[in-house]
Design a binder for these strands. Structure first.
Lengths: 210, 210, 210, 210
DNA sequence: AATGAATGAGACTTCATTCAT
DNA sequence: CATGAATGAAGTCTCATTCAT
């Protein structure tokens, strides 16, 4: 398993030198997250962000060069936070299936608590394609790593490859969209269980659980 | 299973009364599809559409009330076409697994031929959320219908439910994105096969193929 | 008293040669009057007029050269009709005061029945200043003629002049606006009586009625 | 008689916080008054206003939300200024007739100096009916107040009521239009005198001046 | 650092009028 | 005569970004 490099100090905007500056930057980031989540990238205006942040319009440009830049900063931040959540939820003593279950669970919890995550990351497909690709490719790589580990330990088939990672990731993402972002009418365990069973034995009849 | 009513003549904008009008409308729709696909919804301008269509700016408004309206018309059109492609690819004598395989295959072919489909449908999540939801909910319903049929015939587990449909749909969509839209480096059969195997027996070792 | 020239055949638009044409022209004029009255000159569109008339857009230009032209035709028509109403209401055996009372009465009745008259004539001040001036100058001239006749017969002071005509006309117009167009809460006789008394002896106390 | 509250600082658009802003706002208001007066509401464009003001197009929207808003601000401003002029011209020691004479005189002077006043206030009938009504209803109320005071002091008949106010107001307005806005060929005193005589004893012969 | 006014390109949309059928 | 599609100038408004204070 690859060891992640310690996450670089998140350069969310120009680094302020004073305490006052740090507070302003933080207010801007929070406001931006709120606005992007509620209104989407294109409907969000710098004016809206600064109004929400309670700062002057001009202050925005003290910390960011453009609307794109703050958006990118946020996507990257969100992406990291999802990843971290997943990492924290798994531990070395789990079986490979348990690990996937836990990762999905963590993801679904995160999605439910931060529904805006979807909005922001998904809109990146159009507002900042680079970040979007990077987010999913990174996530797929990470998952593929786990799948291969599972294959080595004999739990997963040993033909697992990139396509499996994308398939599973798609599964997870759509379950999150449908059951965490659009509606809360199912328990997360319930949903995660469905996915785990598919991984375990597909959906055909007759593959008795071991 | 409900038989779909023959899709009403898609109300793609105001209905022209003359042949000349019909030609203009068609030119506008084609141009719009091209522009939306290449530039995305927000970067596309009416001016761009009419320039590409070779009509006067004002002519656009003879047929559509707004950019939103033509976009919606296109999403609905695209959505129908994907669906039709999938429907045509399956036949009554297939097993349930074969049916899913065929449907995914048809979808992947369509995606590869019409990469713009992704761009347009996915961007609807932001430009026209209504249509977006409708597209995926309809698709999920259709798939769930097939899953249940498979359960009745004894091929699928009989606990299949909505979550399975969303999981599989997510799988399909992400495979399409990765292997048909972003890159052509795998054969479609190859990719469809991966998905079919997951449905058949998951990814764990030891579920020997029957 | 000036003898009016026999009113020229009202050239309300190009003269149609066929019966069908005459019907279309009439429909257009009626529709235009309705639209101008309801929406005002600028908010009225040719499309709106033809839609209301139930004719094709292009047909409008068979009868009128422009929006201005039909508006002007209507103003002139309305102006004539108000005048006619006033003329009919007076007769040779009335005293001069009775004549003014009758003319105002006729005007107020007309205003109440055709509230749109105000809208159309008044808006001419901006949409077609020429017609507007002409309407009021003609009306003032006519009134001045009556005032002078009254002076000659010894009923009115013999210093009556143009300013008196404008003052009285203004009185009449504002009474019409306030009590016939904006509200119906007073009888017309009541209102006309107020004006007549002012003409008779002003508003100061102590001028005992004769 | 009610003492008017000191007119609240007229909310002519968004309030600027800097001196520079105040200057820009003033330039815009002046330019708008000029444009509206010369071209009328509908022929006036925002572009025309900002060009005349020497500001960028966008600056307009720093202070006003729309053409309607600045127009309304101007009407209200004009309305106030006419009123103030009239108020200043009268004093407690005048007779009631003298008061009306003075008020009309002040109004006519104002109209001759600011011919645009007519254009702007009158066009409000179509561009901003609310303001138009308000202007004339307020003016009528004020006049009615004076008439009643005159009745109490025994100078005016004691049946004066709203209709008298509207009649006199109409007289004044039309005299202003004809003799101050359209032409300067009479002295103001001359014109005001005509009106005063009408109020004093009407236009009939035989009411000898006292 | 913060403030908020200024800028102007560019988007959408309307509609009177022309024109081909 | 009637029809309705086509045209494009012109208008309003938004907003990311720059700049003076």
């Amino acid at each position: 398993m690859s060891t992640d490099p310690p996450p670089a100090p998140p350069a969310l905007g120009k680094v302020p030198r004073t305490e006052r500056g740090r507070r302003t930057l933080r207010k801007l980031l929070d406001a931006a997250a709120g606005e992007f989540a509620e209104k989407g990238f294109h409907e969000t205006s710098i004016t809206g962000i600064t109004k929400r942040a309670g700062t002057a319009l001009g202050s925005f440009y003290t910390y960011f060069d453009s609307k794109d830049e703050i958006f990118q900063a946020l996507v990257s931040d969100m992406s990291d936070r999802v990843r971290q959540r997943a990492m924290q939820s798994i531990s070395a003593d789990m079986t490979s299936l348990e690990t996937e279950h836990a990762a999905l669970s963590a993801f679904l919890h995160f999605a439910r608590e931060h529904k805006e995550i979807y909005r922001i990351i998904d809109e990146a497909e159009f507002a900042d394609p680079e970040s979007y690709r990077k987010h999913y490719e990174t996530t797929a790589q990470r998952m593929l790593g786990r799948l291969r580990a599972g294959a080595e330990s004999g739990e997963f088939r040993d033909d697992v490859e990139e396509a499996h990672a994308w398939a599973i990731m798609g599964m997870n993402v759509f379950l999150g969209l449908r059951f965490c972002v659009w509606s809360d009418d199912r328990t997360i365990d319930d949903v995660a269980e469905v996915a785990a069973r598919i991984l375990e034995r597909g959906i055909t009849a007759g593959n008795e659980p071991r």
